[in-house]
Every structure is written in C-alpha cells, then in structure tokens.
Design a protein around this nucleic acid. Structure first.
Length: 191
DNA sequence: CACACGATGCGCT
DNA sequence: GCGCATCGTGTGG
C-alpha cells in the first residue's frame, strides 16, 4: 500500500517538492469514490516575480502560501477556472507547487482541467494534505526510463527565464511540451 | 468604490 | 496562432 506524503515531504524547497511530486498520486475522496490522478506536470512558485506571493505581500487570497507546508492552495482565475497548489517551504516562507497535469482516468492536461477532473474548487483551499481524510497524495516515482523534463513556466509575464516547470516525458497528461528541452539530454535528480 | 487583469481553455483561422 | 469568455482579487483613488 502506497505511503501517504506527510508534513516533512512538503516542508522543503519548492523546486525539490515539485520534482518529488512527479509520479505521485493526487487523491480526492468524493462521496463513495476516490478520484486519483498521477501527477505528471508541475510548476514551482516561491519568492519570485511570477508568484502570487511576489515581493512577500500577504493577501487574503495567497494567505495559505505563507502557512503550513502540505496545505492545499486553490484559487479561482479567469472568472471560470480553478488551480490547485500544494504549499511548500517552512512556516512563514511563501511557496507552492502548481499541479498542471495528471494522467489516469481521465487525463487532464492543464491546471484548470486538473481541478475539473479531480473536482477541486476553492472549497478545498486550506485543506491539509497531510491529515485531511478526503484529500491526500500517495508517494510515487518515475517509471524506469521515464525522463523528467525541466523548462520554463506557462502563462506568466514575469520570471519567464526561470526553469521551474517539470514534467514527465511522453505523458498524455502534459499540457504543453517543450521539444527544445526534450531534446537536451539533461539528467535530473528526483529532488 | 471603480477598474484592470489574470499561474486558462476552447474554438476558430 | 489568436481572441474571447467571465469574475474574483488586488490596488489605487
């Protein structure tokens, strides 16, 4: 039986957690069903220009980013979409990993599609993935020979030079591929 | 209180 | 590749 990720798994640097989450399974219990998605694409947002916590400002929306690692940060955007993040870093330091793609049934390529498929909304904001009975992440790994690609984040105007997006090569759950990065033979550690 | 815009997705060109 | 839907949130007046 897979291990549930706990506080210590989340209370690390955002990029380390991002990489670690690739291959893990996001689980959401809805009624009698558990919706599962294997995480295949993520982005790291810390104290950088594209983060909701850029310049360290704490607002009502980004508040949980400053709190306990492992807590869900779900926000509403474009008047119609939700995006799901996992809070990282030590208490007081803002950070979160955006889940951008899952594979399983069905695949969901894109952060808003992930929330739609997993039935996650702002009502889930603030839930603790380490303790919540209905929302958790199960440990998982890359498959043998399944490459991790590192590239730039998507849909942002600032911090576009930072290589903080990670995805699993070949997964149908990846939103946008970067052929350039895929052809560069860079071997990355899991964390 | 008004307003500009977004960590997107979809449909059309 | 491009424009638009649609509204919560943050910022500034």
């Amino acid at each position: 039986m897979p291990r549930r990720l706990q506080r210590a798994d989340f209370s690390r640097s955002t990029d380390a957690v991002a990489r670690r989450l690739l291959g893990c399974t996001l689980c959401h219990r809805v009624g009698d069903d558990v919706i599962r998605g294997r995480i295949v694409e993520v982005e790291a947002y810390t104290d950088d220009p594209a983060s909701h916590a850029a310049d360290g400002r704490r607002t009502q929306r980004n508040s949980v980013m400053f709190g306990t690692a492992g807590v869900a940060y779900v926000y509403f955007t474009y008047g119609m979409h939700h995006c799901f993040n996992v809070v990282t870093e030590k208490e007081g330091i803002p950070g979160a990993v955006l889940i951008r793609g899952i594979e399983s049934l069905p695949h969901a390529a894109g952060p808003a599609l992930v929330c739609r498929a997993m039935q996650l909304t702002r009502r889930d904001n603030g839930r603790d993935l380490a303790t919540d009975p209905n929302l958790w992440i199960e440990a998982g790994r890359r498959r043998p020979r399944e490459r991790m690609i590192q590239t730039t984040r998507i849909g942002i105007g600032k911090g576009t030079d930072l290589l903080r997006r990670y995805y699993l090569f070949g997964s149908p759950g990846v939103s946008r591929r970067d052929r350039r990065a895929e052809s560069a033979p860079v071997e990355l550690p899991d964390q």
